[in-house]
Design a binder for these strands. Structure first.
Length: 309
RNA sequence: GCCCAGGUAGCUCAGUUGGUAGAGCAUUGGACUGAAAAUCCAAGUGUCGAUGGUUCAAUUCCGUCCCUGGGCA
């Protein structure tokens, strides 16, 4: 099955480009964004607006409540289903998003494992907090030295995940990984990368952070916090955690804007690191010549059966 | 004008009983198989306010000056 994917760091213009391509090529958009899946988290996640969603069908937004957790695997299964639907309709599926792991989960699949056992995870994290990440890493090394060698002892999250796999399957993660290795590309995918010059990207991020607070992020966060107290997504997502600090009187708005922009810049940098490694990816020259790109993709047959407006 | 405290990395600061310095954050690079906007790893950076003196050697001690904050006038 053929599909297009537009990736890149946050604030690089993926949403806009996706819409332009979808309109011109008869496509529908599937978001690959780990935060835009949350209902109610609109401003802070820069979710496509109602107008944008009216212009082109969007999928995989608003899949969960902020209090819920959606695993990469669960999301990928949802995405497969949505892609099949879009394709069945004769439209070109266009994935738009910046969550590298989720893209990989969709395009290459993850190892086959049982769903995350929340209780087990909580228990292991508590142990980690008590005994230290190193101690759990030592335990992992005793059962699966290969996996332990690839995980930093200080990286509690990864150490715990590895121990979960061991507990749940009776087999160390390295055995699963070796059998899997992301080998099969499950779709005929054309990956396009957006990467504005760093200075410009950072300027856009700074402007966006300020705009979010100007456009009501605090109010949105306040309502969500009331409705979903302690929701992990609200504590984790950039912008929302800063908004919470403001609402709890721990931070000034100016500081929150600055801190949001800073965290976003760091996040964008990590996204770039992730996507740079993707060798099948074509980085589009900046600024993107959208008309030329549409022409080229159309000639190559990347289009749906929809009438081109 | 006088008194006190301070001036060290982009920022906040530590430090050197005299042998030209260091942490956190930022920045940059990297890792990533169901938390991924998460988590973790690595690296660079300095006319140590200026100037004169003492000394083999001054960012460190002494003098003068400049700047910042506070107090007194």
């Amino acid at each position: 099955m053929r599909l297009l994917a537009i990736v890149g760091p946050t604030a690089s213009g993926k949403t806009q480009l996706g819409i332009a391509l979808a309109r011109a090529l008869g496509g529908e958009i599937l978001s690959a964004d780990s935060q835009q899946i949350y209902r109610g988290m609109e401003i802070g996640t820069a979710k496509p607006t109602a107008e944008e969603r009216a212009a082109v069908p969007h999928h995989l937004l608003d899949l969960a409540e902020p209090a819920e957790l959606l695993s990469a695997g669960a999301w990928a299964r949802e995405a497969e289903r949505a892609i099949a639907e879009v394709a069945a309709r004769g439209a070109l599926p266009i994935i738009v998003g910046g969550t590298g792991l989720w893209l990989r989960a969709l395009l290459h699949g993850l190892v086959e494992l049982p769903e995350v056992d929340r209780a087990l995870r909580v228990q292991l994290m508590e142990e980690g907090a008590r005994l230290g990440s190193q101690a759990l890493h030592t335990r992992l090394a005793a059962f699966d030295p290969k996996a332990a060698a690839t995980i930093e002892p200080a990286n509690l999250q990864r150490v715990v995940r590895a121990l979960e796999i061991l507990e749940q399957t009776g087999e160390g993660p390295s055995a699963h990984w070796e059998r899997h290795r992301f080998r099969p590309a499950r779709y005929q995918a054309r990956l396009l990368g957006l990467s504005p010059p760093r200075e410009l990207l950072y300027a856009r991020i700074d402007a966006r952070a300020a705009a979010m607070f100007r456009e009501g992020l605090l109010e949105e966060a306040r309502l969500l916090m009331e409705r979903y107290p302690g929701a992990p997504a609200l504590e984790r997502a950039i912008g929302y955690r800063e908004a919470r600090a403001v609402l709890e009187g721990e931070m000034s708005i100016e500081k929150a804007i600055e801190s949001t922009a800073m965290a976003t810049r760091r996040y964008a940098k990590r996204q770039l690191t992730w996507f740079r490694r993707e060798e099948a990816l074509e980085w589009l020259p900046w600024p993107v010549d959208v008309g030329a790109l549409i022409g080229r993709l159309g000639e190559e047959g990347w289009r749906g059966n929809y009438p081109v407006p």
